[in-house]
Simulated scan of single mutants.
Amino acid sequence: MKSGIYKFTAPDGKVYIGQAKNIERRYREYSTDKIKEHRRFYESVLKYGFESHIHEVIEYCSFEELKDKERHYQDYYDVCGPNGLNCKLTKTGLKPSFVTKETCNLISKANTGRPLDEKRKKILLNANLGKKHSQETRKLQSLQRKGVPKFKHRGLKRTEETKQKISIARKIKIVCNETGIIYDSGSDLCKILGLSSTGNIYQHLKINKPKTVRGLTYRYL
């Protein structure tokens, strides 16, 4: 039983690099359905046939060297690039793993709608434990809970047409339901009531059951 790094070369020149603790056994496994686990290599086999791919042992090495040696040759032959047949690069002590964008999209599509198992739920629940939000983030979260938007239109200037519409709207007369007194605009009403902003007045007028303002209710005339 010999361990080492092997290579398959397709008729179009594309290369697949792998490692095995028993290379002979691994070669026999690839002639069965186990090859389906390696999508790009499997598609090449379907296209050209397994026997059309040249198989060779690049280097024999110990078990402890397998990952480092495999990653070395994966990088050398650029097996995740256009001329490779690997879907991912092996993680080593010095280099992170890498998965092709195409493979990531397939995994994402396969997991869409799939219910999470308990292990995954626990990972997601614990992902943000101990993390602290910045002061700015906490303010935004507070505003969102109060129903205040994230100031998407801050800094934008109103057009003259918009200004005119707002002006006309503010000149609509308002009547008090209890006293029958008519006010020329929301601004006039606010001045009489001693309110600093017309926002509350107009907000109450928009809903079907307005709340009282200083004990009275109002409507558009």
Rank of each mutant, 00 (worst) to 15 (best):
K119T: 11
E102Q: 05
A127N: 07
Y27F: 15
E37A: 12
R214V: 03
R71I: 03
K139M: 15
G130R: 01
Y30S: 00
S185A: 01
C190Y: 02
R158W: 05
T112A: 06
G49C: 07
K131E: 09
H53V: 09
I166Q: 01
V79K: 05
G93L: 08
L156P: 04
H204S: 10
Y218F: 09
R25H: 08
K163G: 02
S142Y: 10
E102D: 06
P149Q: 07
F63L: 00
D12L: 06
E24F: 09
P115F: 03
K146W: 10
S97V: 13
G215I: 02
K119N: 11
Q203H: 10
Q144D: 13
A110P: 09
I54Q: 15
K109V: 01
P96H: 14
L89R: 03
S187G: 05
T162G: 05
C190F: 02
N200K: 09
G147K: 01
F50T: 13
T9I: 11
Q135W: 08
H72A: 10
E37R: 14
I181G: 14
A10W: 02
T90G: 06
E59H: 01
N126Y: 13
N22Y: 02
P115C: 03
K150P: 12
N177K: 14
E118A: 13
V57D: 00
H153N: 15
E29Y: 08
G84V: 03
Q19Y: 13
H55P: 15
N22M: 01
G4P: 05
S62R: 00
G93E: 06
T159G: 04
E43T: 15
Q135V: 11
K152E: 07
D78T: 04
N177E: 15
L216S: 06
K122P: 09
V148K: 00
H133C: 15
A127T: 10
T103Y: 05
E160T: 00
R154H: 06
K109F: 03
I17H: 02
D33V: 02
G4A: 07
N86C: 07
F98V: 10
L156M: 07
S142K: 07
Y30D: 03
K165P: 05
V45I: 04
S44T: 09
N83W: 08
T137K: 08
L89C: 03
D117G: 13
T100F: 03
K173C: 06
H55N: 15
K34E: 15
L221Y: 04
E102G: 05
C80N: 11
F63H: 03
G199N: 11
S185W: 04
H38Q: 04
Q19P: 15
H204K: 09
T162E: 10
G155Y: 04
S142G: 07
Y218T: 01
Y48K: 07
S134W: 14
H53R: 14
I107G: 00
H38N: 00
Y48F: 12
R40Q: 09
Q74K: 02
D33N: 05
T217W: 04
L94M: 10
L189P: 08
Q141F: 11
K36Q: 12
G147S: 02
L189C: 15
